[in-house]
Amino acid sequence: MVASTPAMLDVEVAFALPERQRIISLAVPEGTTARQAVAMAGLAEAFPELPPTTFREADLGIFGKRLRDPDAVRLRAGDRVEVYRPLQLDPKAARSARAAHEKR
């Protein structure tokens, strides 16, 4: 009996910094999770100025919808996995700072 090879799916992995972005096209085996696709994309090498944990621990989404468990979500053909950066400033704190500045 010959073992069949898994079907391959075309997906993308996207990550952006304020000054540049990368969208990496990959062919991954059927059953690949969102987290596994990020590891396969090699983003740590593309963004050496960031710690590798940035990509291992980041929140992930598919087409703008955050994934609750990226280690369990299996990808479908055409999915774009997005790697989200942590917030630099809490949105509530930013609004408060703007409001305080506008009162001056």
Rank of each mutant, 00 (worst) to 15 (best):
92 K>I: 02
36 Q>T: 05
71 D>T: 09
75 L>N: 06
60 L>R: 09
85 R>S: 13
15 F>C: 02
28 V>C: 12
3 A>G: 04
104 R>F: 06
37 A>C: 05
29 P>Y: 03
26 L>R: 07
50 L>C: 09
25 S>A: 15
28 V>Q: 09
93 A>T: 15
22 R>L: 00
57 E>C: 05
54 T>F: 12
53 T>I: 12
56 R>H: 12
67 L>W: 02
4 S>Q: 08
91 P>I: 06
45 E>L: 04
68 R>P: 00
53 T>P: 01
27 A>K: 15
69 D>S: 10
87 L>G: 04
1 M>V: 08
87 L>C: 10
49 E>W: 10
44 A>E: 15
90 D>G: 03
37 A>T: 06
23 I>D: 00
1 M>Q: 08
68 R>E: 15
64 G>L: 15
73 V>A: 11
89 L>R: 13
56 R>S: 15
19 E>G: 13
91 P>N: 13
59 D>E: 11
52 P>C: 12
84 Y>T: 10
66 R>F: 12
26 L>T: 07
50 L>Y: 02
72 A>F: 00
9 L>N: 07
85 R>Q: 09
49 E>N: 15
103 K>R: 12
97 A>R: 15
2 V>K: 06
102 E>N: 07
57 E>M: 06
17 L>E: 15
85 R>F: 11
103 K>G: 00
78 G>S: 14
14 A>H: 12
93 A>V: 15
100 A>V: 07
84 Y>L: 14
46 A>S: 12
18 P>Q: 09
32 T>E: 11
57 E>Y: 08
25 S>W: 01
2 V>Q: 05
